[in-house]
Simulated assay, not measured.
Amino acid sequence: MKSQWRSFLLAVGFFTRIPVPALPDFKESDLNQAARYFPLVGLLVGLLAAMVWWLAHGLFNPALAVLCSMAATILATGAFHEDGLADSADGLGGGMTRERKLEIMHDSRLGSYGAIALVGILLFKFEALSALAPAILPFALIASHALSRLAAVYVMATANYVRTAGKAKPLATTLTRQDVLCASVFGMLCWLGFALMLGINQSLMAAGYFLLITSLPVLVVWQMWRQTMLRQIQGYTGDTLGATQQLTEVAFYLGLLAWERLA
């Protein structure tokens, strides 16, 4: 239990700005054991987003409440994943060769592709969250942040790490089945809870329909992005994992909107 607690704190400290106790004898390889807790960290970030939205919703108009929630997640994570999306867009969009793409992604400067991707993803989030019914928006925030980080774990489990200097060099390169299973439990917990509530209030068929509609956009976006990574750089980097989180988060919101429209 002590070892697992250490791994969890390591995941929190690596992916958020939340203060954690100093961890003695830290080695980069320790992050391999922390990978199973990445979705749990997302669940905590989602809880923070939901709490901020709930408080702001009682004081401000709906648009400002959504903006406050988005700002809270950016502050909590230090824009870690948004930065990864911007770097990925710059590298994959601006480089002509694999080596050049990786070089651009490692550059801290923001280019035109990255700026467009960053503005675009924030606008997508704002519009999608603003369009969701207030009754489900807090649950959507919690589930999306956990599920999208699980999507990044699945990339780590099914693709090769591109060994280049950068933010994600310490990330896990070998995940065990137990790591993936544990991450899956944390990542799908709130999403399945959504479906369970529907099953209680309506029917099991309605719950299954919810799971199908909300998962399809996430699966499509995840597969397309994974294929893009494999085709262009033959694997993943820390930046592309951040992009995975951002893209699948938005895909989940779009799935929820589709479910609301079709239900």
Rank of each mutant, 00 (worst) to 15 (best):
L31Y: 12
D83N: 11
P62T: 11
I200H: 01
Y253E: 00
R226K: 14
I116V: 15
M224T: 06
W5V: 14
W259T: 05
L204R: 01
L40S: 06
C182E: 15
M197A: 13
F252S: 01
A251I: 04
W5I: 15
I74Y: 14
H81V: 06
P170D: 08
Q202A: 14
S29A: 14
L132P: 03
G199I: 09
T214N: 04
L241V: 00
D107S: 12
A22N: 12
M224E: 10
A243K: 00
L123K: 06
G91M: 04
M229P: 01
R36A: 15
Q234Y: 12
L23A: 12
K27D: 15
L129I: 05
T248P: 00
N61F: 11
A11S: 07
D107G: 10
T73F: 05
L254I: 06
A34H: 03
L132C: 12
P138C: 07
F14P: 03
T77I: 09
P134Q: 01
G58P: 04
F252L: 12
L175I: 03
A63T: 14
D239S: 08
G208P: 07
M51F: 13
S29H: 12
A143V: 02
Y236E: 08
L147P: 00
S184I: 05
L44I: 13
G120E: 04
P62Y: 06
R100A: 06
L55F: 10
M156V: 03
G95I: 03
T174M: 11
M70G: 09
I18N: 00
G199E: 06
V52I: 11
T248D: 00
Q223T: 11
N201S: 14
G238T: 10
D90H: 11
F252K: 00
F38H: 02
F139C: 03
M188F: 13
P19S: 09
A243F: 05
A63W: 13
G114R: 02
L219V: 11
R17I: 03
T240D: 06
L212H: 09
L44Y: 09
A56T: 07
F80E: 01
A65N: 05
Y253I: 02
